[in-house]
């Protein structure tokens, strides 16, 4: 399944680039992420609990950052597997300054297998969009300094 889109963040490009690669930020913002532990150069082990209403599943996986081109672009590779199936995502993130903030464009492919793909195809499109939205919502929220 192909996914693409963009999201405007209220941060400058370099801040944005750093935030998107900061494991503590990713841990906080990736939907369902329980822990993100560095296991090597640009590679992290991830535990996540995917939850969508009644549907839930634990995934063990890996997050890898590649093809860094500061502060313009990088690739994010995510894979995880659990009892209810597996998922594998490969996306290119491109950052461009826009209206004083930064537009984060993403384009990639998500592969899903196992029970979730066999019985959940009609919700796949909606769910992936929702997850991406939640990620950016959290990101925007966590990066915006609290208003006094």
């Amino acid at each position: 399944m192909k996914i693409s889109g963009s999201r405007l963040l209220d941060l400058d490009q370099e801040q944005c680039y750093r935030a998107l690669q900061d494991p503590s930020v990713l841990e906080r913002c990736m939907p369902g992420c329980r822990s993100l532990v560095r296991v090597g150069e640009d590679t992290y082990a991830m535990k996540m609990k995917m939850a969508l209403a009644s549907i839930s599943g634990l995934f063990d996986g890996k997050v890898r950052i590649a093809d860094r081109n500061f502060p313009h672009s990088f690739r994010l590779l995510v894979e995880g597997s659990g009892r209810i199936g597996f998922l594998k995502g490969d996306g290119l993130l491109q950052l461009t300054p826009e209206n004083g903030g930064t537009s984060v464009g993403y384009e990639g492919e998500v592969r899903v297998g196992g029970t979730i793909s066999a019985v959940g195809q009609r919700l796949m499109d909606t769910t992936s969009k929702m997850m991406i939205k939640r990620f950016f919502d959290k990101l925007a929220e966590s990066l915006t300094p609290p208003q006094q």
């Binding site: 066999a118 019985v119 009609r122």
Partner: peptide, 10 residues
């Protein structure tokens, strides 16, 4: 290669 019609839902 995933079977996406895996139940009578689809």
């Amino acid at each position: 290669g995933q079977l996406v019609t895996g139940e009578y839902m689809d």
